[in-house]
């Protein structure tokens, strides 16, 4: 339920039971990776051996507020409109 809460997923009791079993299987599978001897191997974060993909500090084109907000109906004075977050 904690994980579901973090992911903003709504689940009922039946879902929880099913997901718990499935997640358990996944975790067990991940556990098999632990059997590999990783002594002396640095943790990797990427599958490609690429570093330093960078851009120069120059200002490019902006989308503009009209196009930027065109994907939503919920807007006002150039802002995105969302349900109130702070009491």
């Amino acid at each position: 339920m904690h994980v579901a809460g973090l992911a903003r997923l709504h689940m009922d009791e039946g879902d929880v039971e099913r997901m718990a079993t499935q997640l358990g299987t996944i975790l067990a599978y991940v556990d098999t990776l632990k059997e590999v001897d990783t002594e002396g191997v640095a943790p990797m974060s990427h599958a490609v051996h690429l570093v330093n993909a960078m851009r120069e500090d120059t200002v490019g084109e902006h989308l503009g507020v009209d196009i930027g907000l065109s994907g939503t109906e919920e807007k006002e004075d150039g802002h995105f409109l969302v349900p109130k977050i702070v009491g």
């Binding site: 802002h79 409109l81 969302v82």
Partner: peptide
């Protein structure tokens, strides 16, 4: 006054 927030990115 309203239950909304305005977001500027």
């Amino acid at each position: 006054f309203r239950p909304v927030s305005l977001v500027d990115l």
